[in-house]
Design a protein around this nucleic acid. Structure first.
Lengths: 200, 200
DNA sequence: GGAACAAATTGACCGTGGTCAATATCTAAT
DNA sequence: ATTAGATATTGACCACGGTCAATTTGTTCC
């Protein structure tokens, strides 16, 4: 029987292998950090051949996507538990775990940026999912009279993401990293979320 | 005599080699585009050994930095010749050459982002320079009563860069690329540059 | 059990960026 | 012209991500 969707067939083995690969990868990351993650090492610890790795993940970045996605999900978990911030400094404080995570390593940041939007509809990865989730949190937070009301919370949310990325990116830049992340975010987000009165 | 700074010594040869490498690279890019750029091919056409390439550029990305930097400089040249835009749609139109260039290819975009801030003070690359130049243009454009006056043109300029990057990034994302770049930029920049009146 | 098919696994192999000790070339001082 | 010291060039070599035809393992039906 071959109905339209028939996703049965050998799975127990596959699932175990995948789990072993992920566990091994976690271990390596814990010991050497993300920059030290080598597929060869993962495969060695998982006790599989290299080809097996690439049968489970289209490329190394897909593994990073998975791992980083999990990390970010954990952070968002905490963020969701927080009360909605009512001032910009509060907002920044609530954002800091996420920001610090993204700012920890240049390569991680690059992967996050590259994967934050899916490259094609079929392949929305874990990081892309976390960005949607993040987006939702921001919308919720920004639907608040404490912040500007002349544009939609959706738009505000996109802007916060844009400034957040900009702040972290500048932080990696020697020319501009003398200023701490929260201090950089403050003027951005105040101007974006609570614009002052126009002159003229 | 070994004074503090003594940057003399064998140069004619070096300069020629470097020029050959760059010329070869340009040729390859013209024929195959940036994605098809292989150091081996460059080196082959320049008639040098691989090691020579890496004696002239710390890594392949440094070459890309140089080439892309030149491209962007050409675009900024045109932008500087333009009159200062007085409305957001005008601004967007003036920005489009830059935006389209950045949006042409995912890998180029990644390099641009990674290099737009120097990784260390000593190594400000061509792309980083173009971003400073860009920044200056924006400041000039935004020092205009047509745009909001409650924050500095510097801050406005940083914001424009942030939104610009965000728009291009989202454009690479299948989930969000149904909307054209100028249409995506419009709400961002109107909300950023001409915030409406606050309610309350 | 075993035949027949599907799916997972293997590891030798490749492409490409990047390294480095050895060599060739240049410059300047005598 | 010769020598010494610096600088540029070379190409064999390595690291590491990724491929694929061959093989093993699992499943299904008789």
């Amino acid at each position: 029987m071959q109905t339209a969707i028939m996703t049965k067939a050998t799975q127990a083995r596959t699932l175990k292998t995948r789990a072993r690969l992920l566990e091994a990868a976690r271990q390596v990351v814990e010991e050497q950090g993300y920059p030290g993650l080598r597929t060869e090492e993962v495969v060695k610890r998982a006790g599989t051949a290299k080809g097996t790795f690439f049968a489970h993940f289209p490329d190394k970045e897909a593994l990073l996507d998975h791992l980083i996605g999990e990390d970010i999900d954990g952070i968002l978990e905490e963020m969701e538990a927080l009360p909605a911030p009512k001032t910009v400094p509060d907002l920044i404080e609530s954002l800091m775990p996420l920001v610090t995570y993204m700012a920890q390593d240049r390569d991680i940041f690059d992967v996050i940026i590259r994967r934050s939007g899916a490259a094609a509809i079929e392949e929305i990865g874990p990081i892309a999912v976390t960005f949607e989730r993040q987006f939702g949190i921001f919308i919720h937070w920004l639907s608040n009279p404490a912040f500007r009301q002349d544009v939609s919370p959706d738009l505000l949310s996109e802007g916060v993401q844009a400034f957040l990325v900009q702040a972290v990116a500048l932080n990696f830049c020697a020319l501009h990293n003398t200023i701490a992340l929260p201090d950089r975010l403050l003027p951005y987000l105040e101007a974006w979320l609570i614009p002052g009165p126009q002159r003229s």
